[in-house]
Nucleic acid binder design. Sequence first.
DNA 1: CCGCGTTAGGAAAACGTTTACCTTTGCGTG
DNA 2: CACGCAAAGGTAAACGTTTTCCTAACGCGG
Lengths: 340, 340
Amino acid sequence: MTAQSRPPKTPASLTMLARHAGVSIATASRVMNGVTNKASAETVARVRAAAAELNYRPAGAGQALRRRESRIVAMLAAALANPVMGAIASSVEIGLRGEGLVMSLCDTREQAAVQDAYLEEMQAQMVRAVVLAGAVDSPGLDRMRAEGPPLVFVNRPDPGDPGSAYVGIDNRAAGRDLAQAVLGLCCGPVALVHGLLDRTAGTYRRQGILEAFAAAGRGAPELAEIAAPGLNQLEAGRAAMAQALAAGLRPAAVICLSDALAYGAHRALEEAALPGGEAVRFFGFDDLIFNDWVAGWLSSVAVPRDLYGPAVMEVLGQLWQGAPPAGPVYLPHHLSLRGG
Amino acid sequence: MTAQSRPPKTPASLTMLARHAGVSIATASRVMNGVTNKASAETVARVRAAAAELNYRPAGAGQALRRRESRIVAMLAAALANPVMGAIASSVEIGLRGEGLVMSLCDTREQAAVQDAYLEEMQAQMVRAVVLAGAVDSPGLDRMRAEGPPLVFVNRPDPGDPGSAYVGIDNRAAGRDLAQAVLGLCCGPVALVHGLLDRTAGTYRRQGILEAFAAAGRGAPELAEIAAPGLNQLEAGRAAMAQALAAGLRPAAVICLSDALAYGAHRALEEAALPGGEAVRFFGFDDLIFNDWVAGWLSSVAVPRDLYGPAVMEVLGQLWQGAPPAGPVYLPHHLSLRGG
DNA sequence: CCGCGTTAGGAAAACGTTTACCTTTGCGTG
DNA sequence: CACGCAAAGGTAAACGTTTTCCTAACGCGG
């Protein structure tokens, strides 16, 4: 059954459809676009039947060319290997499909150059909007903010303009909430683990945490910030934690700015095999889907994944109607408490 | 700095470029496409300069319309929330970008209807090829095999035609290798956990495992197959394992057809809190990136993630040259041994 | 000086849609 | 009956490329 040399039969065009239905292409086009006041009921039926018979679908290129806008919406994710991004992309995609749009998903690998290349390419594709899940600051982003399709930032606010449209949790509030829970549950020193702080989400989370600790009167010596560089958060968390433990830090609780960091930090603690090490509580952000299965020791700030899509669609709808970016749209978060 | 009502300045067209450079659009087009034997060196330089100045990029829609083929390659993933899919997509994308192509990634949710909707849409976009990471059998897939752009199946062979192009591990051989390792490491009864077996990859893996056990003379009573329905592999693994444990099964080793199943099964074992439960060894497939961090108890069949992209590009190159689908391209796998 | 080949480049058609504008027909009203 | 208006639908231009075909100029051998 191996296929022969390919015969990619071209799909039916509007011209063929019109001929098949015995009408002009103008009429065929109008019927396919639901313009009913320009054709009799009988004509509409005939065209519809012909379309079904020929399996007609309007060619995206033709539409894009004429309308000067394609049915594609670009989504630029910072790291697809991160299941959080995958879940968000999936949710956004459902929303887009609901409006007959197509998502074009790309992986920027957190690199400004790659992100810019994609932004350029997507503009050449006349995309209707660009959704950025984890944007980094870049010249191309600046250019596109000024003159380009609507931009929506997801899960990580625009690093260059706080007024840009944003959909995701209120990271600062989430930080405060998490910190308050930690303060209520644990006494003793707390370690705050972060990787690179050039990500807006992490910055805001940290801010909230610091605020809550300050408000509770438990400041610097009791809250130790530890960090390690490195693009890979898992490795960074491990390195930071190992270093801190080696330096004699013995936290009662560890707060990590992301679950991936927590995975790394936890492993460092296990490897240190300290007496009483199992009693240390871990806290993170993102609530990876695997936490329930293999990380019962980790409490994490979760956001309902399915909410991203509808919220993004809502924001896009407004932007397409010409409204200026309305700033942040916060999704509700909650703390998934585990262990202890 | 909030942006005003949007001024999406249209990008420069070939006509503008030609006027700016003082040549005809034909010449401009030829220069942009690297056809050098039709323009003097001086003209080429002038056009290039104008292109840089205007930040010109050819409009995808115009090209697609004229060439009857866009620069887009569709990738249909079965479940983006699965980090394996994300990693594969990322690798394929790097390969595509290297050839100046754009990836359009979609999530089919393992549903034939969604997959077909995407296949239709992608054909309307005149995509240059479709890469399917986890295809399910569907009428639209049959149609596209017969008359459509080239198809490449990744990580899960074509459920409908074994001769289709495939890139991924040799699942049967991987099953054999894993089983042999299990046979060498553990004595006592072995449980084989699977979810739905309508996935080609799982079927082949199971086949290899059964073969190896049969060859070692350790058949049915010593190798117990357990399964549970359910789309979510994590839940399915847990349910299957819980059921088996309740029925009195006490395996020395558990082989799961995927790591997600293993996560579920492991949790069921933990929840059962059996004496000696920690001694049970787990084996899986995919080697999720988190295994090293939070699943030290799981050995898994791994495949170098970066190999997907180059291999897919190689296959696509051949298909675009008109070669018939060449059947499977096997990537090397190896067993990541952990625990014990 | 004529004919010819080569180089450099232009004119125009075609790809598939959408839409502004036009035409035809039928009907109601003064 | 003359007029106007609505309904139904056709004509053609435009979107941005690519590519085929054409032309003009030039060099060169006879």
